[in-house]
Amino acid sequence: MVYYTMRVLILLILGFCGVGVYGQTCCSGGVPMSGNIGLPIADSKAIQLSTSYDLNLLKTLKSGNETLNDQSRERTTQTFLLQAGYQVTDRLAVEILLPYIIQKRIISQFGNEQITQTHGIGDMALLVKYAVINHLYWTVRSGIGLKVATGRSDKTNNNITLNADLQPGSGANDLIFWSALGHGLALRPSTNFHFMGVYRLTGVNENYLNSFSYRFGNELSLMAGLADQFTIGPIITNPSLTFRYRHVQTDTQNDFILPNTGGKWIFFRPGIILSWWRDMALNYYSEIPIWTEVGGVQLSPTVRHNIGILTTLKFGSDEGF
């Protein structure tokens, strides 16, 4: 039990220590969900706990697919994600994702720096997953979930209400459709092809600015890549190379399409997972946009970093920390 307590403690401390730094999201209304949801498959009855820190830096000003020569604006979203999953059976699992979001806007213009910052608990997500195929070389899982409007969408700065994309929450409940496929290559069993698709059907915030309805655009995220596994001394290492396509539809306000929203991106996403101990892994990935097309003129992601720890607790077994 002490081992479990220590493991949970490490997760909590890693989750808390970064709070108070800063953050931002673009066209997503809070949680950087599509890139983080979907814990790996675990043994039956196992509990998975993950904590991660996600930094999304936006300082590339785009007009359509052209980059404007303007470095005066910067947005960051820092998200601290606590994620917990329970493998109900070999095939059925549930997970919950709770973000704490710090949004920051910096304008460096005319020799001055203007900073606006908000933070708070973001929108929580719940996901139920089912392994349609759970084979040694093939896994196919599908899931459905809810993003619940637990985050505030009426944050103010000096008593003045901030606009939607500086809010930690979206004020809307969304439906999430999730699927993932994994395939171990026959030629090299340690190499795995992976695919993940997430579609978020967004709901409506009926009380935006106390009088409008606001809806963030639906979001599609498709990821495909390869991962390998080998050991470096005592460390099990899983490097991966993934490409991610993200399409966010335009936001609407009172059913009118808002200009300068929505876009399509292709990201290159290298990552690595390191396991020193059984059932505990340190993972890191970054996302670098390699193609962008935004609606109108928008600040667009420049780079994203995500680092986290995942641990699996197997109650009822004799396997320890």
């Binding site: 304008i107 203007q114 606006t116 003045i160 500086l166």
Partner: peptide, 9 residues
């Protein structure tokens, strides 16, 4: 209301 781009944005 905050318009979005920020002061001097």
């Amino acid at each position: 209301y905050d318009g979005g781009p920020g002061k001097d944005g």
